[in-house]
Design a protein around this nucleic acid. Sequence first.
RNA 1: GGUGGGGUAGCCAAGUGGUUAGGCAAUGGUUUGCAAAACCAUCAUACGCGAGUUCGAAUCUCGUCCCCACCUCCA
Length: 492
Amino acid sequence: MPASFRIYNTLSREVETFEPQTEGKVGLYVCGMTVYDHCHVGHARAMVVFDAFVRYLRHRGWDVTFVRNFTDVDDKIISRAAEQGRDPAELAQSFIDAFHEDVAELGLQHPTHEPRVTTSIDQIVDMIQRLVDTGHAYPADGSVWFDVGSDDDYGKLSSRKVDDQFSNPDKGSGKRSPADFALWKGAKPGEPQWESPWGPGRPGWHIECSAMAEKCLGETIDIHGGGLDLVFPHHENEIAQSECSHGDAPYARYWMHNGLLKMGKSLGNVINLRDALKAFPAEAIRLYYLQNQYRSPLPWDDAALPDALSMLSRLYEAREKAEAMEGEEPAEVVAKQLGADAMKVLELGRGFQKRFYAAVDHDFNTAQGLGFLFEVVRALNRFSNHKKARKRGGPVVAPALEAFRLVRDAFGIMGMATTAFHDEVKAKRLGALGLERSDVEAKVEARSQARADKDWARADALRDELVEMGIEVLDLSDGVTWRVKLASAEEA
RNA sequence: GGUGGGGUAGCCAAGUGGUUAGGCAAUGGUUUGCAAAACCAUCAUACGCGAGUUCGAAUCUCGUCCCCACCUCCA
């Protein structure tokens, strides 16, 4: 029996309790990429939000069918291909491959289905035919247009009135009304095209999602997701197409929209996901998105990923301390003997799951859920300062370790072994600063020798050189280690 | 102009009427050969402004001032 959750529904503008159509099952459709370029960090937010959402629902016992499409034929693909003298299909495929590489490194799970427009032409033509047959669409000059005036419900998702939005009539397109939109675009010479009852052409942008959703999930899907910028016109048009071709069946019961990243060409801060992944661990990028509520606009600047990496390091370092703790006694006994700090860790660790579920079940509030984890971390760090924590604290921190595992399963964060995490951070940060690991280690070793010789001046000079390079040296009680400074991250 | 969403301490940010959310930065302390890291303390009786409802409001109501997004391709 899956756990109940609540989610903000753009259709009602309220947080609602999710009611499945079929007991225990969730059908989720999320608008994917138009593959004319690399996935950037803005796309990645949507990818991560819905990936984590699916993970979480599955963790909570739901049987989720997750569909995310590719738009692999489109005006932008065609014009980009023309610019580069490439074949549009080849260009689209190359960016699909690149996307798969990028999101695999980002740690995304595969959707249940990943339909493409070019392999869904039959379903698209079929849906257009149904719309033409029922009087909701009309052919003109080799294209087919959706008749917005034929749909009384048009505008219900975006609360827009047709008259307000379209004051400038298009000329020469064959459209009856400026609000009408293309279902089928008549072929132009040299462009990709398919046969249809209305002549050769290709699908319009909106119809593909309606057709692919129907193909993979049936007439009514449980949750339709996508970026907030797609509400109008894309999702509004999807509703119109699907509901007019389905009779009474609603298209989607819940509409879930993620907020956008504050980035854009005008801000000059558009970063490709693969470039971000070169400089930062995937989990830091995931954490950056999930530490904010998914509906809020999210700032994007040079400090974003360094900050997220700081947070992530704090989590890994705390977990490492907890993992190192030993002991076999009953947790209560140890906690009582070691004092209030031990009691606090035990208490917060044991209470974590309930608080975490409560937060995330309420409109997928990952930020609050992670906030609770940081409370556990603070208590854990504090407890770890106790002399006897290392030898006897194991049972006390066991529930805290369970909390880390829960976050790993639910969000796909904290999934690495500690050493692997530190290695990845070093490799990526050194790469970003243009440093060789062997050079850094040689200098660190030289400094250790100077320290052993009590040549403090030389040791400090070497340390200054390292700091200058962007490396900070940590003299811990059990040895010397080093890390790449995060504050010097300028290139992200 | 239309539609929607916001304004919470130095910055980011959660908050589902009533117990210190959280993160980052800064300053002081513990620690250290000196640092760093970690921990502790402070900045924090914060909620745009003005009224109202309530025993009690960041949270509800009304008014008001700003900001942002979308309305053209966008995640």
